[in-house]
Each structure stands twice: as C-alpha cells, then as structure tokens.
C-alpha cells in the first residue's frame, strides 16, 4: 500500500546516491517538483532514465546529480538544444556524463519488458543504424519463424517517479491525457513515487484514465503545480514561455547556477 508522504520525505527515503532513477513524462505531466527535490537533497552519481530528457533533466545534469543518462531524444521541445546536457557531454562539466542511447521504440519495449518482469524486450528496430554501438541491443532469432529481431535489455530502475492529476487517501492514482510511458516506468521500478496535483476523498471516473492502484506503488506525495513548466491536463497549461527562457538561462554556467540557487536550492518547498 502506498504511503502518503511529503515530497521531501519521499525523495529522502526512496532516492539514494548512485541509484538508477526514471522521472518519466512525455511533454505532459513531467515531474519537475520531484526533480527539484533531488537537486535540493544533492543526490550524486545517479543514472537517469527517460525517453525524452528535457528541461528538468538539463537541470539535474547541470546541478551535478547525474553520472549516466539512458535516453532516446534529448532536447528542449520546440526550442532547441539542452545546453547543460550538451556541456556535460561535450566538455564533461560539471561531471562527465556517460550516455546509453536508444530509439523511442527501443526504450518503450525495454520499459514494457521491465514492467512484465521479463529480461528483455523485442522489436523490429535499430537494424542498419549506428545506435547499437551505443546501447544495449543484441540480435536474436525468432524461434518460430527465424526472423532476426532486436532485443533490448529490460529497464529496471531502482526508483520510478511520475506526476499525475490526483490520488485518493489510499494512494490510488488517476492520470489522464497523454500518458506516455508512465505506467510501464512505475511498474518496471523497484520503488515508485507518484507526485499529484491533489489528494482527494474520492476519485471520480474520467474516460480513458490510467489507474495506478495504491498497492502497486511505494509512496504518493502531494505536489500542486509539480509539473510546471510542463502541463497537467485539466489543471494547467504548458508554460511555453519558460521553455523559451530556459534556452538563455541554460547557455551560461553562471546564469544557470544563479537560477538553480534562486529557484531550487533556496526556494521554499
């Protein structure tokens, strides 16, 4: 049964230095508040996993939390590059960052395998590309047809962290709109933390909603506004202006450090 905790308690209890952590979200429902709490608690040497590392991963990397990144597309959507990610890769600042690079289809299959507790996922993918040299792909032969297929090692994060619209007091979580790979990321992880906009007495059914039962989760924390500048369907819109502003803030080490100090390290929780 999921325990209802504060965000501070949740990160302190679930995330340790050196852990493999997946903070998932696909444009929608990106767990920014949880990422900021990881920066505040100064976690180090993390392996970060995500299909689409964007601004929050740029912040975690620039703040020195990460040693390794498993990903398939790293950018500031609609704006351009992630400058902290690039600086870590191109100049090893503030820490060198090792990459394991996939395609979306490969990572999705690897998460689905993790959620199903299988050792690998299988897909028609990667063939003829230069990606297999930089990722965990092997080739297997279908035992029934002989077809050559790509196998990707299952993703099994130590901690899966996602953001959702709401939970009830038993920790049952309800999320809707673009749901990305959040369900798979949570079920593939050994421990999980879901941050929510609000904790309510009763979950009203929403068509097409994903339900993560409380008994399948480790902890749930209220974090209203916790996806900003990403959006929460039914709650608030994406702050597109922030993504544009981030480009200038993140280009410069000092401007970045100043921003992290003001908005994360010294910000009220």
């Amino acid at each position: 049964m999921a325990r209802i905790v504060t965000l501070e308690e949740g990160i302190a209890e679930l995330v340790s230095d050196g852990d493999t952590v997946a903070l998932e979200g696909f444009t929608h429902l990106i767990p920014h508040a949880a990422g900021h709490e990881i920066i505040r608690q100064r976690r180090r040497g993390l392996t970060l996993i995500r299909l689409t590392p964007d601004v929050i991963y740029d912040q975690l990397i620039g703040a020195g939390c990460a040693a390794r990144l498993v990903f398939s597309w790293g950018g500031n959507p609609g704006v351009g590059s992630l400058h902290r990610l690039r600086e870590a890769v191109e100049h090893g600042w503030p820490e060198p960052l090792e990459l394991e690079e996939h395609s979306h289809a490969g990572m999705a299959a690897a998460y689905a395998a993790g959620a199903a507790d299988l050792p690998f996922g299988v897909l028609r993918g990667y063939a003829g590309t230069d990606l297999p040299a930089h990722t965990m792909v092997r080739w297997i032969e279908c035992p029934f047809t002989g077809e050559r297929l790509a196998a990707v090692r299952a993703l099994r994060p130590d901690v899966g962290i996602v953001h959702a619209q709401r939970a009830d007091r038993e920790g049952n979580v309800q999320l809707w709109g673009i749901s990305g790979v959040q369900k798979e990321a949570v079920l593939a992880s050994a421990r999980s933390l879901v941050t929510v906009e609000e904790i309510v007495d009763e979950l009203e059914p929403v068509p097409g909603a994903v339900i993560l039962p409380g008994w399948a989760l480790t902890a749930v924390a209220a974090a209203p506004g916790g996806a900003h500048p990403s959006y929460v369907h039914g709650y608030y819109e994406r702050d597109n202006g922030f993504y544009v502003r981030w480009d200038a803030i993140s280009r410069d080490r000092e401007a970045f450090g100043e921003w992290i100090r003001e908005h994360v390290l010294e910000a009220a929780r």
Binding site: T27, H28, A108, I178, R238
Partner: peptide, 28 residues
C-alpha cells in the same frame, strides 16, 4: 503544436494511447 505532446493533440485526437502501444501496435 509546439511539441509532440501538446494538450491540444490529446483533446482533438480520436484516441490517445501509451508510447509502447503507438510504436508496437501502430507503427511496427
């Protein structure tokens, strides 16, 4: 849309499915 995950895409879609499904059932 500004990104592949804009809210308006979900609001106007015939169906919204997860990422593993879009790549496996529909593309692959």
């Amino acid at each position: 849309p500004l990104s592949i995950g804009d809210g308006e895409l979900a609001e106007t879609a015939d169906a919204v499915v997860g990422v593993p499904e879009i790549f496996a059932y529909w593309l692959q």
